[in-house]
């Protein structure tokens, strides 16, 4: 695997292989010595042209646990803010010695352009691009869900027949898109729920069911997991929904709605959470919430992604 650009490109076996590798990485993170020598001598550049502290530190921790050297590059105050092109930035980083570039880009398709342009020979890992994809987030969500369902016996398994609700701002969410492709490839049934203004056009072509009424969706789909998406507050001013209170009443995981969920349903959220808005504290802090597991598993999944893209020689 030279690059990791989107979950749409992954077939079932490749996806399961990444998750299984992440299981082995996670096991090493339970030890006293957490560092592995695997990527010694390799250099990973975190090229973040859009702000993201959580994803950046997760990738940084993953690369360091594998003994890679890590260089963090943020857009603010850099040559990019002076108008340098992606080509020049990437070629400069490779001249410095980068073997892998972890790219967060504000434009959908930025990482794919970098990987396929021929500008550089480095591996490219997509750390979120525009409203397109965020593959490592979807992989860590699938990993977390698989572990909750199968525990120690997770290796080799997919998510066949698992019912997942993804709720909220699907329109602007790369997390939702990456999850749609990955979870359905792994055999899950995915249902998207949100106000009509926040469901994208063209959703009819996706391998999912789209609904507007969250209570009906919970009753109809008997979900194994409910994934709440973060609603960016600035969307409110763009009139996607009338008010925070109305959004919360219709599509938030309120105390009452959480209490009405089936006993086995887990609650997922990619973070950062808006407590009391799309998710109540009762849901976020319950034992059925996987929010902190998702963060911890993110490091293991990103170790797997870096290992599989950077450790091997020519295929």
């Amino acid at each position: 695997m030279k690059h990791l650009l989107s979950t749409r490109d992954l077939d079932r076996d490749t996806a399961v292989r990444i998750l299984d590798t992440a299981e082995d990485m996670a096991a090493t993170q339970q030890r006293e010595v957490k560092k592995l020598p695997t990527l010694r001598g390799k250099t990973v550049v975190n090229l973040f042209l859009e702000d993201s502290t959580r994803t950046r530190i997760s990738f940084e921790a993953a690369a360091k646990r594998l003994s890679a050297d890590v260089i963090n590059f943020a857009a603010k105050g850099s040559s990019v803010s002076k108008g340098e092109s992606l080509q020049d930035t990437a070629q400069t980083l490779e001249a410095i010695g980068a073997d892998g570039i972890v790219l967060r880009h504000w434009a959908s398709g930025g990482p794919a352009v970098l990987a396929r342009s021929g500008w550089i020979a480095s591996s490219v890992v997509n750390a979120g691009d525009g409203t397109h994809e965020h593959p490592t987030q979807a992989l860590l969500d699938a990993f977390t869900l698989r572990r909750r369902l199968h525990g120690e016996a997770s290796r080799g398994r997919d998510l066949d027949g698992v019912s997942v609700l993804i709720v909220g701002d699907i329109l602007h969410s790369r997390v939702a898109r990456s999850n749609v492709w990955l979870l359905t490839t792994l055999g899950a049934r995915v249902t998207l729920v949100g106000p009509p203004t926040l469901l994208p056009h063209g959703i009819a072509d996706w391998p999912v069911t789209a609904l507007h009424d969250l209570d009906a969706a919970i009753a109809d789909t008997d979900p194994d997991a409910v994934m709440m998406l973060r609603v960016q507050r600035e969307r409110m001013n763009e009139a996607f929904f009338p008010s925070a209170r109305e959004y919360s009443a219709g599509w938030g995981l309120t105390v009452a709605r959480f209490a009405a969920l089936p006993e086995r349903t887990v609650v997922m959220h990619p973070g950062p959470m808006n407590r009391g808005f799309e998710i109540s504290s009762a849901a976020a802090d319950s034992p059925r919430s996987t929010v902190l597991e998702q963060v911890a598993n993110g490091v293991s999944v990103r170790m797997a992604a870096l290992y599989l893209t950077l450790a091997g020689g020519a295929e």
């Binding site: 292989r17 990485m25 020598p37 695997t38 290992y307 450790a311 091997g312 020689g313």
Partner: peptide, 15 residues
């Protein structure tokens, strides 16, 4: 993950 020949071969699956 401790091998010295990782870069000489296609990436190996871990166990």
């Amino acid at each position: 993950m401790y091998r010295d020949d990782l870069g000489r071969n296609p990436v190996r699956s871990t166990a």
